[in-house]
Simulated assay, not measured.
Amino acid sequence: MTGSPQTTLVLGGTGRTGSLLARTLAERGLGVRTAARHGAGVRFDWDDPATHPDALNGVDRLYLVTPVLRVAYADQVAAFLDLAEAAGVRHVTYLSTYGADQAPPEVDIKAVEADLTGRTALTHCLVRPAWVMQNFTDTHLPIVDGAITVPTGGGTETFVDAADIAAVAAETLLAPEAHAGARYAPTGPQALTVGQVADTIAAVTGRPVTHHDPDSDTWIAGALAAGLIPADYAVMLRWLTGALAAGNGSTPNDDVEKVTGQPPTAFRDFARRNARAWTSQAAR
């Protein structure tokens, strides 16, 4: 990419990985433009194509985060990538999902990956992380009445820190040629049940925490009834939780250390650093 402006557009620039990624890239001397609907360097809305050209102006690499809480978005992303190519973007790092090749056909994860990998004018890297540790500190999987409620069938997952995902993505954007065509699956160092996660949180907070493992259909129906997810997103939740129950959750690998030179964060260390998030929840 010699001669390029060396500026990265970070979609989801106020999000869990995007905000960390933007800071890392800036600290290491790469130009960065964050984009989101609110609070970023430039306004970006997937449903408002008028916001897309300004976001892409003068950038040569892109951190692609697709629309959230949706399953059908491949056409929108394809149109945006067409625009990105025309604007001079030459590398895309896509924040995908662990096991994306096993996603249900109703979910456009595989379609976006196929579109991206088929574009000859762009180099690309796919980042397919495991479940993010921050799910337990925000509204995704909160502790309510002393319990984390999510169906897993007792399966395990190698929960990964968003900071480790951002660190991997940063390397791919700082040196696109070195990571062109790569597929990384950032994981934590241990496969844990949610019950073990609950035990760890209990240990660092000094408060009892358990895992309530309900029937998947009942849990999804409750989320729909509460208006927490749109109706078509149920297929995504059923796939993600079903993979754990079937024993197909993520397994530890060395991708984080291989790419960044640093070992991935253990959940216990993450929990110690974030204990206040859970004690604050309990105080409310």
Rank of each mutant, 00 (worst) to 15 (best):
P5S: 13
Q6P: 12
T8Y: 01
L9W: 00
L11C: 07
L11V: 05
G13S: 03
G13A: 04
G15K: 00
T24L: 15
G31E: 07
A36R: 05
G39V: 00
G41A: 04
T51M: 08
L56F: 10
Y63N: 10
L64K: 01
A74L: 08
A74P: 07
Q76G: 13
H91F: 11
V92N: 00
T93V: 14
Y94I: 10
L95Y: 13
D101G: 08
A103V: 11
P104T: 11
P105E: 14
K110G: 14
D115N: 06
T120K: 12
H124F: 12
V132R: 10
L141Q: 14
I143N: 05
D145E: 12
I148R: 03
P151E: 07
G155E: 06
T158Q: 11
A167W: 06
T172L: 01
H179S: 05
G181I: 06
Q190K: 14
V194H: 10
G195E: 03
V197I: 10
A198Y: 00
T200P: 01
V204D: 02
T205N: 10
R207S: 11
H211E: 02
D213K: 09
S216A: 15
T218N: 07
A225V: 01
I229E: 02
I229W: 03
P230F: 03
Y233C: 07
V235P: 09
M236A: 15
M236Y: 15
W239P: 11
L240P: 09
L244G: 06
D255P: 04
P264D: 00
R273W: 05
R276Q: 15
A282E: 13
A282G: 09
